[in-house]
Structures are given as C-alpha cells and as structure tokens.
C-alpha cells in the first residue's frame, strides 16, 4: 500500500506494528521456555520466564498509548482504522499469552523433583504446536497474509485435540498413582493454559483477517473438536 501523504502517519503505524511484533517475539519464547523449564525441571529458566512478563505488560501499555494518541490526532479510516483496531486487540491477547506463560513458569517452580519425566514431557509436547500457532499468526501479521491467518484460525482444533489427549494422560497417571495427584493437578492447569493460548492465537487470527480483508471470520463457522466436557 502506498505511503500516506503525511509520512509521520505511516511512521507511527509502522512503530505500532514493530512494537507488536516485539511483544509477539517475547511471548513466543515465553511459551517454549516455560514448558522447557517444566520438562527439564529448570528453575532458573522458569524464573527467567517470570521475569520477562513485566516487559510484555510495558509494551502493551506503550502500544495502547500510541494507538490512543494516533486515533486522537489522525482519525484513521478504512485499512488504517482496521489496523489500529486489530493492533489494540492483538496487544491485549499477547499480554494474556504472556500471563499464561508466566503462570506455567510459576507452576514449574512448584513441581516436586520426584515428578516423572513422562509427566513433564506431556506439557513440553503440547507447547510446540501452540508456539507454532503463535508463530504462524505473527507471520500472517508481518506479511499481511489473510490466508495464513485463516489457516491458523481453522487449525485451533489440533490444539484442542492435544489438550484432550494430555488431559486423559494426566488422569491416567493420577489414577495409577495417587501420589502424582499434586503434580498432575499442576500439569492439568498448564495444559489448560496452553489450550487458552491457542484460543488467543485464534482471536489474533480473527483480528488480522479483519484488518487485511475488512471481513469478519465467524466463530460459529470454525471447525471444533468434540467437546470432552473439560
């Protein structure tokens, strides 16, 4: 798209997009690192993930501040309006993803050293597709690719299936050995956090699709995994 006649307008939109990508990059590594901390029982890494969350919060505030100022001074229209709307909503989703990853890090610190490697692997396995979802949706944002955004939106089903399978796995461990119930409960919350992160990626995909096309993706048209009641 051509630049604005007022070049500062283009610069300001670019700055918002760059800050959002920075936020996205930070939370993407937070997802992977928090689950790796669980997998390897690495408390230093877990603490490091927790310490990154305030920078995500600050970036969200910074993006919001820039958007409020841009709306007040430039009254964006059409694609510009959709961009700032999508950026504002996406910043909120990324901040939530940061919180959920931080929560996984906190739970990693609470896990007993005796928790088996098998239980730990389960969460790490689910982290990979979730972080890939986020990576793909950020890629769609960076390249303004509506098709990629729609693909992410449609594939949330895979994450839900991962969640359902991990849920059953943890229940099995806990039934087999009631001493794992404490750790199992933490694992279930972590799995739920990852599943929620998948939902946030879906939301971001909707905003990005709207930004690019001006059309809404309708949630009721999205393929859904069978409801397992969890």
């Amino acid at each position: 798209m051509a630049d604005h006649i007022v070049s500062a307008f283009t610069d300001e939109l670019d700055k918002i997009a760059a800050d959002l990508m920075r936020m996205g990059g930070i939370v993407e590594t937070m997802i992977l690192d928090s689950c790796q901390a669980v997998d390897r029982n690495d408390h230093d890494l877990a603490k490091d993930v927790i310490s990154r969350d305030p920078s995500v919060d600050r970036l969200e505030e910074e993006v919001e501040r820039q958007i409020v100022s841009l709306i007040a001074r430039r009254q964006p229209m059409a694609h510009d309006l959709r961009s700032v709307f999508a950026a504002l909503k996406t910043a909120g989703e990324l901040e939530r993803i940061g919180d959920l990853s931080k929560n996984i890090g906190k739970r990693a610190l609470m896990l007993d050293d005796a928790v088996s490697a098998n239980m730990r692997h389960g969460v790490a396995r689910m982290a990979r597709p979730v972080s890939l979802q986020l990576h793909a949706v950020l890629d769609a944002y960076a390249t303004s690719n509506a098709d990629t955004a729609k693909t992410v939106w449609e594939s949330d089903d895979d994450i839900d299936q991962h969640y359902n399978s991990l849920f059953r796995e943890m229940i099995t461990y806990m039934i087999e050995d009631p001493r794992t119930i404490g750790a199992g409960a933490h694992m279930l919350f972590m799995a739920k956090n990852l599943e929620r992160i998948g939902d946030h990626c879906t939301n971001i995909a909707e905003f990005i699709y709207f930004q690019i096309t001006g059309e809404y993706l309708m949630p009721h048209e999205r393929p859904k995994a069978p409801n397992t009641g969890v």
Binding site: M1, A2, D3, H4, I5, V6, F9, P76, M77, A78, H79, D80, L81, R82, T213, G214, E215
Partner: peptide, 19 residues
Amino acid sequence: IFTSPRERRTEDYITGRFG
C-alpha cells in the same frame, strides 16, 4: 465506505494517500 471501502482509489483517498 469508511471501514472497508471496496475500491482502491476510495481507500487511498480516505486514508490520506493521495488527494
């Protein structure tokens, strides 16, 4: 028109890209 114009020329005009 102001959120999702169909034509590129409309988009460019209302977003201040030519005038």
